[in-house]
Amino acid sequence: MTGGAGAGADAFGGRRTASAPGVLYVRFHAGAEMYDRLLGLLHEITPVVQALPPDAALADVRGALRYFGRDAAGLAALVRVRALARYGADCTIGVGANPLLARLAVYDGGLPDGPQGRPPGAVRTAPEDLGAIPAAALPGVGPATARQLAPYGLDTVGRIAATPLGTLQRILGAAAGRRVHDQARGIDPAPVTPNAPARAMAGDRRFGRDELDPVRHRRALLSLTHELGARLRAEGQVARSLTLTVRYADRSTTTRTRMLPEPTGHTVALTDTAYRLYASLGLQRARVRGVSLRAEGLTAAGLAARQLTFDPGDDKARRIEAAADRARARFGPGAVRPATLPGTAA
C-alpha cells in the first residue's frame, strides 16, 4: 500500500481521524529468539514502545521527529536499515496517525512472499481510502465476527463504515458494534502503551503454503511444545501460561492465552494446553499460514510447587522425558523427536 495519510486525513470525508502520522506498527520477519534484540532497535528511537509478541510492536515516534530530523516514514526506514545491518532481519513497518491506521498500512491481502507477491519487508504509509480493505483486516474483526457480518454484505471496511451504528450494534452487540464502527472510520483513541515483554520463551512454525489441514496444524503445535518443553527444562525453568497465536492467509491473527494447571516445563502438560487452545478457536477449514506458541510467566523450576500424583503413566512419561533430554544434550536437539512428526523414522 502506498499513499499518504496526511495531517487530519479523513478516509471517508467525515470525521477526521488524527493529525500527522506518528505511530509505527512493526512486524519483524525473524525467529522468536531474535525478538528482544529487534525490540531494542525501537527503544533506540523512542521510549514509547508497546511489545506485541511474538513478532510485532507499536512505537509512538512523535516525540522523536524533531530530534532525528525525519518524519515518521523516515524513522521507519531507519529502523528497517538497522535491523538488516545488525541482525540480517527484515521487517514490514506501517506508518499511521494512530495504532489502527499503522496496522492497516501493512495489510497485504494475504499475498505470498516473493517477487510476484508482496515484498518481504517495506515501509508503508496508511492509505487515504480504507474502503476496499476486507473487513477481516480490522483488529476488532476476527473470523467469527466476519462470519456474522458476511450475510449482511458487510465484507469490506467501506461497507461497514457506511452502515449506521445502530445496525451494527444489532448484529454484533452494543460494545462490539461501536468498536467496529469506529475502526472502519479509522478512529482509534487507544494510545501506544509502553511495556516490557513478559519473561517468556517462544517458538513459531510457518507453513510453506496456506494450510487447511487441522492434522498438520496440530503437528506443528506438537513440534513447538516439544521444543519449548526441552528448552524450559534445559534452563531449569517452568512456565505459568501458554499463548497461542495463529496467523491466517489474509495476515490477520488470533491470539489466545490459557493458564497452565500448575507451573511446568512438562511437555505433556504443554501439549495438552496447546491443543485445548487450538480447539477453542474452532478453526475447522481455516487457511493458516503459521502458528506460534509463547510460554510465559517463567520462573525457576526449584521455586515452583508441583502437585503430587499417583498416576503411574505421568511418572513414566517424566522418566522418558528425562532420558530424552539426556540424549538431546549428548547427541543434539534432533536426537529424539515425536514419532508423528515428519522426518522421524517409522
Results as ranks from 00 to 15, higher is better:
Pro139Asp: 11
Gly140Trp: 14
Gly142Thr: 08
Thr145Val: 15
Thr145Phe: 06
Thr145Ile: 15
Thr145Trp: 14
Pro151Leu: 04
Gly153Val: 07
Thr156Met: 10
Gly158Ile: 03
Arg159Tyr: 03
Ala162Val: 05
Thr163His: 04
Ile171Pro: 00
Ala176Arg: 15
Gly177Ser: 03
Asp182Met: 08
Asp182Lys: 05
Asp182Ser: 04
Ala184Cys: 09
Arg185Ile: 07
Ala190Trp: 12
Pro191Cys: 11
Val192Ser: 09
Thr193Cys: 13
Ala196Gly: 11
Arg199Val: 08
Arg199Ser: 09
Arg205Tyr: 12
Phe207Glu: 13
Arg209Trp: 10
Glu211Pro: 14
Arg216Tyr: 13
Ala220Trp: 01
Leu222Asn: 02
Leu228Phe: 06
Gly229Arg: 10
Ala230Cys: 09
Ala230Lys: 06
Arg233Ser: 08
Ala234Pro: 10
Ala239Phe: 05
Thr243His: 07
Leu244Asn: 00
Arg247Ser: 10
Asp250Gly: 14
Asp250Val: 10
Ser252Met: 07
Thr255Ser: 10
Thr255Lys: 03
Pro261Leu: 06
Pro263Met: 12
Ala269Ile: 08
Ala269Tyr: 06
Ala269Ser: 11
Ala269Trp: 08
Leu270Met: 07
Leu270Val: 08
Ala274His: 04
Tyr275Val: 05
Tyr275Met: 05
Arg276Phe: 06
Leu277Trp: 04
Leu281Cys: 01
